[in-house]
């Protein structure tokens, strides 16, 4: 959140509730700019639009005259692309079929990377993935892709059959079959989106807490609380760096898992 956005609920709370400290709430992540309800133009939508515009512009600009000897911008794009292409796609999916998934994984990775980092980059400072709609959208893409390629490659019956491990004693299957199907069709996408959402949401919440708390203590507290408030700001700074690491890590994990699910769907044996 930008400083003003952070300050607004706090000040409102301070004046409205007669001066008590009001901790940040999940509701504050809902920030409609135009309209309201399900179809409102919200702040994360704007951030997401900006990020897509920036990414598209950067990628196009740096690859426009892609040369054998890279320029600085091209070098950055190349490093990211090579990372997704070789370390994620090729190593996990295998050198035979990875190439057609590289654009999707690269898109996924760049969207996640930029949007996650927006969580701590001023003046945006809003974690888009802290709104569950976006992780669900990306998970939906991954979900559809890996089931589609799996069914297309093996046929529906073989694909579903391939999920069940073979060679187990009969009664175990009563337990295994629903578990495996649950894992493949419900748990995997659920955890994929919730992991990303939870990390971004909670991390940002923590930052909000330390910043608004510090602000309140410095402004309204007694002399001792003012020092505590300063400590709270230091803590917020440290956590911001920590949050940056988590943001990178989550972008990586999401893409990694997407590649893993695709690889599992394409794998010949379970």
């Amino acid at each position: 959140m930008s400083p003003t956005a952070l300050a607004t609920p706090f000040l409102a709370a301070a004046s409205g509730d007669g001066g008590g400290y009001h901790a940040p709430e999940p509701q504050e992540f809902y920030q409609p700019l135009i309209g309201h309800g399900d179809w409102a133009l919200t702040r994360p939508i704007v951030v997401m639009a900006i990020s897509v515009g920036l990414i598209a512009w950067f990628l196009l600009a740096t690859t426009k005259r892609a040369s054998v000897v890279p320029s600085r911008g091209q070098w950055v794009t190349e490093a990211l692309h090579t990372f997704v292409r070789n370390s994620l796609a090729r190593d996990i999916i295998g050198s035979k079929e990875f190439l057609r998934f590289v654009p999707a994984l690269f898109t996924l990775f760049s969207i996640l990377l930029v949007n996650n980092l927006f969580g701590i980059i001023p003046p945006i400072q809003f974690p888009t993935m802290g709104r569950i709609g976006f992780p669900i959208a990306l998970t939906l893409v991954v979900y559809v892709v890996y089931h589609t390629v799996g069914i297309r490659k093996k046929g529906f019956r073989n694909y579903i059959g391939g999920m069940i491990p073979k060679g187990l004693p009969g009664p175990i299957y009563i337990l295994i079959v629903p578990l495996e199907l649950l894992t493949q069709f419900i748990t995997q996408p659920l955890t994929l989106s919730l992991r990303l959402f939870g990390n971004m949401f909670a991390g940002h919440m923590l930052l909000l807490l330390f910043i608004t708390g510090g602000q309140y203590m410095v402004i309204h507290g007694s002399i001792g609380l003012k020092f505590a408030g300063a400590g709270s700001f230091v803590m917020a700074f440290v956590l911001m760096i920590f949050e940056g690491l988590i943001e990178l890590l989550q972008a990586y994990i999401f893409t990694l898992l997407a590649a893993t699910y695709i690889a599992a769907a394409l794998a010949d044996e379970h």
Partner: peptide, 26 residues
């Protein structure tokens, strides 16, 4: 629980960037 607008826009955003990346960049 998702906001429908955000969910749909997430899909649209991915689709737009995917087209750019798969047609041009990669």
């Amino acid at each position: 629980l998702p906001l429908w607008g955000e969910l749909i826009f997430g899909l649209v955003a991915f689709a737009i960037l995917y087209v750019v990346v798969s047609r041009k960049v990669v």
